[in-house]
Design a protein around this nucleic acid. Structure first.
Lengths: 206, 206, 206, 206
DNA sequence: AATGAATGAGTATTCATTCAT
DNA sequence: GATGAATGAATACTCATTCAT
């Protein structure tokens, strides 16, 4: 993938480019960010970019895939050892929310990617994978009776959609806003697990 | 805003442009669609476009706002006269799903718009409005005890996020796919209203 | 091929571009001539070029193919009605020489094209065609005994090679030089037809 | 010219670069071959190239001139000791053909060079020299009556043009094709010496 | 001798917009 | 109302060359 051998200085440069690009893409979208912008920001010539990445597209793709991977990893680390499937789902939801809170720009990256044919496949696949993880927990919960019957995949996608939207609305694109709403993780989990409706109180006469 | 007075023929042209643009934006995204593409599709010169619209941006904006407006109108028409707030929410959800099923491209339009600074404000505002509608029903439900306590706006956004995502996943970008999953509206409503957890069955012995 | 409808003014512009490009390509080679150079020369913006041609490559290709076609046409017009195959060959040779004399730059165009993979196919095909014309005459001459036995195609290519080289050496790349050597057509024909060797006079004593 | 003193290992490196460059130039033309390509092929950094050659242009120029020189040397070695001028010419032609057969890429190199202003002078000069050699033989032949009267230089250039073209057509750019046409040298010599026309049969009555 | 890193001018092409007719 | 023509700034990417280590 990246056959070039890099010195320590080179690896640092590469990281710098990735970081800067991530920030600019988040702020200005993919097409709104020129390769020249990234280089200007770093105060280097344009050739530098192409020394480390074969194309703008490849850079974006790398950024995107590593983000999706990282999200999944954090989820898996967080739920490790939890037995109850409902608890696993809850923890997964909370982890995702905190993940996006701590990495402003990742959501933006994903949303941006979803808009371009070149990248939407990656996003869909990434979401599919995360949904599949959740879906497995849901199935388990159905089997043990702690989760109501239904299509597990659909439910998993419902959670995914709700979470992404929560994050977008309450954290916004820019860092500052994510500070507010400290309880979001808890509330999001509630919404997904309990839905809207009040639980029927155990009807006395029955 | 639209200062030009148009003849009947002129209005038709205007509609043609809007329709064609909507289709192309949905298929190829905003930046992927050149003004020239729209004109080529209609077999007219570029001057025509600028006769009816001051800019590409203005056209897109008009398209976007009218879509959001239309969605809201259909929702309102559908829930008119329904008394129970939970029923209103359910009907609203189902209407949205069917709306996007019947207008492939609208979701894409909205998602695209959300990516561009120029338009994201409109989208956010539009979503705020729809969420506010839902939120009002939720509040009512909380008051009557049919909906559990919580932040009504957050719940409304959860619904919005889930719906958009369902539509995206199950209807996709292209028309053909929306035929499948005929029960989506019902399932989506279930997810939003009931959440994941099994309702505690009235415990027999108690 | 060129689906665009052009006004009279447009056609003139198109010709201007073709002419200017032909000249610049001849003077500076293909890669040495930037699209911007052509536009600057005409005092127009770069967009103009792309209004009339889809790419630099397409323009060059058109130039090349029309040149080869024109050469062949002039040859055919010149030999029309000539009965003796050797006379036809001789006339063809002379016509070619005068063709290149009157169109400085055409040879350069062809030579340039031959160096680029994108175009060399066209050149080879064009040469094949012209060689095939000549080859037909040669075969006829062999049949009637006026031309010595041998591979007609090889002979035809020998003629082609000699002519191109003569033109290159004696007319050069720039117009001025083609004035000298007014007898070139005659001498070239001699070389091709008679070869080097003196016809052995029937040796008296034998 | 090559001021740097080289160790044995250094000279080998230099040769490696020359060989690789020659191959790549032949395969991809001058502008199509980047300095980086040459270095990549050898698995060395770009600094190496500039350690041995002051510029890409200088390398190409050296390659070109040594090719032309080598061709001339082989010709001279081959004709050494041959008395009859016509025989010398014939041998020269055959030697050239076999030279290009055995060194695929040399023709390509020369043709490429002819297209660039920077190098065309060298090519012309080289051709001039080879033509002058031939021309001397022709003059001698005219004096002894074995070659018909005419402009010796023009005749020499005719031979040169025919040979180059034969080689190009029958050997092509890539090695494999040069195997075919084993008789090319013989046929080419025939064409140049005898031309097309049938020799007048010794007229009986004279 | 050699390497990886950096430079920056140069190239083809696109596209929203304007304008004369 | 409509057309073809024109504009020109912007973009991704290339590559010969230089340089610090």
């Amino acid at each position: 993938m990246t056959p070039r051998k890099l010195t320590k200085r080179g690896s640092q440069r590469r990281e710098q480019i990735l970081d800067t690009a991530a920030r600019l893409f988040a702020e200005q979208s993919y097409h709104g960010t020129a390769v020249g912008d990234i280089c200007d920001e770093l105060g280097v010539g344009k050739g530098v970019f192409y020394w480390y990445f074969p194309s703008k597209e490849a850079l974006f793709s790398e950024l995107l895939q590593s983000s999706l991977l990282q999200l999944r990893r954090e989820q898996q680390a967080a739920i490790e050892g939890i037995e109850d499937p409902v608890d696993r789902i809850e923890t997964g939801i909370k982890t995702s929310i905190e993940f996006f809170r701590s990495k402003p720009g990742f959501l933006s990256l994903i949303r941006t990617a979803a808009r371009y044919d070149e990248f939407s496949g990656f996003v869909e696949k990434g979401q599919e994978i995360i949904a599949a993880d959740t879906s497995a927990h849901i199935k388990e919960g159905m089997a043990t009776g702690s989760i109501r019957q239904g299509d597990p995949e659909l439910m998993a996608h419902g959670i995914l959609g709700a979470i992404f939207h929560f994050v977008e609305v309450y954290f916004g694109t820019y860092p500052e806003t994510s500070a507010g709403r400290p309880e979001l993780a808890e509330e999001a989990a509630q919404f997904c697990l309990a839905g809207l409706r009040e639980r029927r109180a155990p009807e006395p006469g029955s």
